[in-house]
């Protein structure tokens, strides 16, 4: 008997851990003639960090705000724990917008207290201050904060309800590298509470460090979705060669894209590629070879630089 129970429990646990906390199906959003989101579907397993990546105007904010229940989709469905989002949804999630305003002339403490009052079982002020390191700025006017301090406060607002899931829309854009790293630590802490995180970002490094799964979108369409590692190995098993085109940008090279003054060639066999380049009599001065990272993948997929 006991063994069966244990097995069942194990089975349940396994099943739950794989279960999607959120799922979107054929999501569409039109603004007049602009198709901001065209038929995107994916699901986010509970307790993971899911990264939504894409260049400016890709449709990240639109997608995430539909999932938050802020925007209504032109088509498609959003499920939270396999049910369409209902009135209780907002008590269970924490939301941080790409840009937001707060009631003015109140301090950080008053802001937190105001938002705490909205939730039935809010986290204690002390805990929020501790997690988000707000003690230095707690009595400051909420408009007189640096970019990093403000993001920490906004994250503090998002974690008030002990959320099952947090939505963070470009939380680290505009922060210096130090502040960004601090913010990553905060997110790691939230993840450690088994909170699911949905994050949009322009920084590949950030996605690589934080995210268990990445979806790359552009022009409102889903281009790729996988773990960072799988994305890299499936697209680049080999090396990335960058060579100046020296004015011969009309050359047609296999597996290459033109990137400014350079060809970027992905190759499995360096030997062959080098021989080909020599045969073409390209000037090889300035040639570099490197292991590709997500930035390179992004360029390959979208043909544009992320940090525009």
């Amino acid at each position: 008997m006991l063994i069966i129970f244990v097995d069942q429990w194990k089975f349940c646990h396994y099943f739950l851990s794989m279960k999607a906390i959120m799922r979107i199906e054929n999501l569409k959003k039109n603004y007049g003639n602009i198709e901001a989101v065209k038929d995107i579907s994916f699901s986010i397993p509970e307790g993971t960090c899911f990264g939504l990546l894409g260049p400016n105007g890709a449709g990240k904010t639109t997608t995430i705000e539909i999932m938050e229940g802020i925007l209504s989709p032109s088509g498609g469905k959003v499920y939270f724990r396999e049910k369409e989002i209902d009135n209780h949804f907002k008590q269970k999630v924490g939301i941080q917008f790409q840009s937001t305003a707060l009631p003015e002339f109140i301090t950080v403490r008053e802001t937190l207290e105001l938002f705490r009052s909205f939730y039935p079982r809010p986290r204690s002020l002390k805990e929020i201050v501790e997690i988000c390191s707000l003690s230095d700025i707690i009595d400051r006017d909420n408009r007189k904060l640096s970019g990093g301090q403000r993001q920490r406060m906004l994250l503090g607002l998002a974690i008030i309800p002990h959320p099952e899931m947090v939505f963070l829309d470009e939380p680290t854009t505009g922060l210096d590298p130090q502040a960004r790293r601090n913010f990553w630590n905060l997110i790691e802490r939230i993840k450690a509470e088994n909170t699911t995180v949905l994050l949009t970002t322009h920084y590949m490094e950030e996605a690589e460090i934080l995210c268990d799964q990445i979806a790359i979108i552009d022009h409102g369409q889903l281009l790729e979705i996988d773990t960072p590692q799988n994305l890299l190995t499936s697209h680049f098993n080999g090396a990335l060669v960058r060579v100046p085109h020296s004015g011969r940008d009309d050359l047609k090279l296999d597996n290459s894209i033109l990137q400014g003054d350079f060809f970027e060639i992905t190759t499995k066999n360096l030997d062959i590629t080098m021989k080909e380049l020599l045969a073409l009599k390209l000037n090889l001065e300035g040639l570099t070879i490197k292991k590709p990272n997500l930035d390179d993948l992004f360029l390959k997929l979208t043909g544009e630089s992320l940090r525009t």
């Binding site: 802020i70 008590q91 917008f97 937001t100 305003a101 707060l102 009631p103 938002f115 909205f118 939730y119």
Partner: peptide, 13 residues
């Protein structure tokens, strides 16, 4: 206009 209402909409209020 400045988004305070949107932030409120994101809470159970």
């Amino acid at each position: 206009k400045n988004g305070v209402l949107k932030r409120m909409k994101a809470t159970p209020i």
